[in-house]
């Protein structure tokens, strides 16, 4: 089977998974308390005559298709969701699609930076510890990383806030921008980066802990293989052996775990965003739940589902790139 057909098969399968999960989400949507029509209309009831409001209500009721059977309602709902018609936010008094832009950007920024930091540190570190396994350096990193991935992110956050925002006030405690900040684009960028430092460090620490350990374990497994001995016997440089022969082969399981980690990272940023008052999707989700603004909540949930599935797709594509054997898989 070729790469292309393999990918197509996986894509079809992921679309299938998406529909299964979306049915689950639809039931959550149906079980949410409150009248969806009233929520959608928002507070227009105050500015309209009762009979005019009733007419509008009935029209919207039909428009939302609430009189139709559940199956039809599901397809109307999923159609709305897929075309960006996420409903009306009672909290912001605007359509959801209009208010999720900035938070999405903030979250993507924070997660992308953490991701870069984690991969830039943990992959070289994992390789280095695997090569020097059982040495002092390796033992030291082992202890540090077990602490890193055992501590929950919010405890790391509290410790770092205490150290670097309270005792030695280098970084701001929360927010995304200094209040009343004005300046050109570059200064704005610096200000945001300064605010992002602490949350990004916190998110990176737990990631570095687990990914480093994983890279190390995989590398050790690979370094024991016979083809590594062959490569060394051929007289290849140690660098070539490690980075070309060994790492390339260790990469396959690393891709799996890294993708799963990235998806979890986005989910986990809910906690970080609420600690650092970072105005991203996670904070929006929590605020939405607190304010019972369910259109927002459901849109966020949809985002996380799509993200998880996109992670799966990326994983599949990455497989086909790093592992030539994939195309032979049935």
């Amino acid at each position: 089977m070729g790469k292309g057909r393999y990918l197509v098969r996986r894509l079809v399968y992921i679309v299938f998974v998406f529909f299964i999960i979306s049915i689950l989400m639809f039931f959550i949507y149906k079980s949410m308390p409150g009248d969806p029509v009233r929520m959608m209309l928002g507070d227009v009831s105050q500015s309209m005559k009762p009979d005019a409001y009733q007419a509008l209500y009935d029209r919207t009721y039909l428009q939302l298709g609430l009189d139709k059977p559940l199956v039809v309602q599901y397809f109307i709902w999923i159609g709305n969701m897929l075309t960006g018609n996420f409903g009306y936010s009672t909290q912001y008094k605007r359509d959801v699609i209009e208010v999720i832009g900035t938070p999405m950007l903030n979250t993507l920024m924070l997660n992308a930076v953490s991701m870069l930091v984690v991969f830039a540190i943990s992959i070289p570190l994992g390789i280095a510890t695997a090569v020097r396994k059982n040495g002092v350096f390796d033992k030291f990193i082992q202890v540090i990383t077990i602490v890193g991935y055992s501590l929950p992110s919010f405890i790391i956050a509290l410790l770092l806030i205490f150290a670097f925002a309270v005792k030695i006030p280098i970084f701001p405690i929360s927010g995304v921008r200094s209040p009343g900040f004005s300046g050109n684009g570059f200064e704005m960028f610096l200000d945001t980066a300064w605010h992002m430092a602490l949350p990004a460090i916190v998110m990176s620490i737990s990631g570095i802990g687990s990914i480093t350990r994983y890279v190390r374990a995989e590398m050790i497994d690979v370094l024991r293989m016979d083809y590594i001995k062959t490569a060394r016997a051929k007289g290849l440089k140690e660098k070539t052996v490690i980075y070309v022969h060994a790492f390339r082969n260790a990469l396959i399981p690393i891709v799996t775990i890294a993708t799963a980690w990235v998806v979890a990272l986005f989910g986990g940023s809910v906690v970080i965003e609420s600690v650092f008052l970072w105005p991203g999707l996670g904070k929006m989700l929590i605020d939405g739940l607190m304010q019972r603004d369910f259109s927002i909540v459901l849109t966020m949930q949809m985002f996380y589902v799509i993200l998880a599935l996109a992670g799966n797709v990326i994983m599949d594509i990455a497989y086909t790139i790093v592992d030539p054997r994939v195309r032979l898989e049935n």
């Binding site: 959550i28 079980s31 986005f266 809910v270 929590i286 739940l289 589902v305 993200l307 599935l309």
Partner: peptide
């Protein structure tokens, strides 16, 4: 594939 933490939050709150 279900996003774990957001899903837990939403379930426990609803």
């Amino acid at each position: 594939s279900i996003p774990f933490l957001p899903f837990c939050i939403i379930l426990s709150s609803i």
